[in-house]
Design a protein around this nucleic acid. Structure first.
Lengths: 142, 142
DNA sequence: TTTTAAAGTTAGTCAAGGCTAAATTGATTT
DNA sequence: AAATCAATTTAGCCTTGACTAACTTTAAAA
């Protein structure tokens, strides 16, 4: 039968799934930096309590996640103070905001109901490549 | 200010995120039942070693996941034997297969490169509502 | 200024989903 | 029949992301 690695050429999906696992780890980070940016814009600052309310999780969970985001260089925080985005965090938040908007507008252009478009965009946005995003953008006329 | 629940009507996203967290738990299940169905069709049976190879994880990880799937009623398995889908598992696999196809065909119809479409479909499929799926289906002419 | 309430933190627990290393089982060779 | 090899299982560990309960800090009211 020859080289085993050539036996199932159409099924070498391992890399796809590996990247999907990595992608999931990024989703929470992206949701947080987006939400923090929203809060800073809308309320002037990002407090744990607001994040907890909007994500529907406890304050303890927010605390854990913020620590991880800080470790990974996306935010800065000091005990009992509000949360700030680093330059890296701001950059990611802005990228996510644009991407979210493109996905949402695309679904609207497709004729999807706004409420459903908002919900689906939240899930889809993390899994759209640059190429597909460009196709979405082109379809809805930028 | 009245009812606090009406104060931020555009920001009651907690439910959206709660559903997304639930959705993630379903993704692995869906990927596994889909892959098991593929293996049974293509190779006559679904063995742990094949799942491990295709997902790019170790056999131990497959073992854990299969136990969870069995607990949740999607598969049956006996020690050192191959894995079978229950009726519930077959149903989910078939639903996923159809949905995957619709998403993939839709991306192709949009002009996305097949390799990228395949990759993105794998991530997007788990986050598409029935309504959006219908819109995709309609766009690519079924 | 003292008390109280809200916000934030810490400690400990759990499930999912990964891993490695070691043990076991089943199947194939010799 | 015994040895060997591949597949599977088990045990133990890790990280993420959730929780509750208890504690501390900050801010606001009395």
């Amino acid at each position: 039968m020859g080289d085993p690695s050539a036996r199932h050429p159409r099924h070498n999906k391992a890399e796809v799934f590996a990247q999907l696992r990595y992608a999931h780890a990024r989703e929470v980070t992206e949701d947080y930096v987006e939400m923090i940016a929203d809060l800073i814009e809308e309320e002037g600052e990002a407090r744990s309590v607001a994040l907890a309310e909007r994500f529907g999780v406890t304050a303890a969970t927010v605390n854990n996640t913020i620590k991880r985001l800080e470790r990974d260089g996306f935010v800065t925080s000091r005990p009992y103070r509000s949360i700030f985005l680093t330059d890296q965090g701001k950059e990611l938040a802005e990228k996510c905001r644009k991407r979210h908007e493109i996905v949402y507008n695309f679904l609207i252009a497709l004729g999807v109901d706004p409420a459903i478009a908002e919900f689906d965009a939240e899930g889809i946005e993390h899994h759209v490549s640059e190429e597909t995003l460009a196709a979405f953008s082109k379809f809805s006329g930028n």
